[in-house]
Amino acid sequence: MSTNALEVCNLRTRLRGPRGDVEVLRGIDLVLRHGEVLGLIGESGSGKTMTGLSILRLAPRIATVSADRLRAFGLNLLEIGDAEFRALRGRRMAMVFQDPVGAFNPAKTVGWHFRHALRRVADKAPEAARDWRQSAIRLLGEVGIPQGASVLRNYAHQLSGGMLQRALIAIVLACRPELIVADEPTTNLDAIVERQILSLFRDLQRKLSAAFIYITHDIAIAAQLCDRIAVIYAGQIVEEGPTDVVFGTPKHPYTQGLLGAAVALDKGDARLQEIRGDLPNPAEPPPGCLFAPRCSFARPECAQDDPGLRTVGDAHSARCVLYP
């Protein structure tokens, strides 16, 4: 038995477009240990969500996904057929979405979703599938919804985002997966609900001892929740390491910029430091380091070769020529 819940090597995703293919993931490398929470952070459009969808083979039909290595639970996911892969989803791997309202079938009650999810894992928990209503009410109780019976009768449009996100987490809880991708699950919620959902995630992770990929652009959340951090920029991991190391001594200029944008106010500096410019156009990426055009430390050689991930400390790596 491998010690890793997930191993991803050189994951590449191309999207077919009207003006040719666009590469949105350019060789993602990730390793996720059992029971570990990995924070995948980056700005909008950097490829965070596409990474999660590509790993779970949920990328849209215009996408072509390839990888040198994609393993989970000791299985080679690259060799598995679609039907077999489908059998893993909802049982051994699951996903929590950014917009909880949109994740529910609007024509069906919340109870309907529980009934089918529990039926799907009936072999793991036969008694829960038999009396799905009681199990659903109990699961909703566990995520802080005491009035489960009435929630089950409701449709998604009748409930708040926070309530639905709890219900979705309860459904995931029922499936007892070993790998969970959470895609900005609190972005659409207000601050108080966000804090409650985050503590739910911590409980969920403790109960299931599942491996988590927690996708977010919020550094404060990542710092609270994650064991390790991977910083993604333009479809590449640019820095990766333990949370306190990456946030304590960020090595990559992009990570430094991200943290600068987040912490400048704490230090009494009234001016918010920002990273100049925008993400490169994925159809015409710059040569060499993708961040070089926005980087204040850029040197001539940055525009020549992709520096590749370099070891910059204990279990800490960065994709930058500043480090030999």
């Binding site: 969808l53 779970l56 949920l58 849209p60 489908r86 059998a87 893993l88 989803r89 909802g90 049982r91 699951a94 996903m95 979405f97 917009d99 949109g102 994740a103 529910f104 079938n105 609007p106 069906k108 089918h116 999810a117 799907r120 459904i171 499936c175």
Partner: peptide
């Protein structure tokens, strides 16, 4: 293209079930 269809696929339901329901 809706999110709930991706969500249904993330639950591993079979394609016929997702198409109909």
């Amino acid at each position: 293209e809706r999110d709930y269809v991706t969500a249904a696929r993330s639950m591993g339901y079979n394609e016929a079930f997702i198409f109909i329901n």
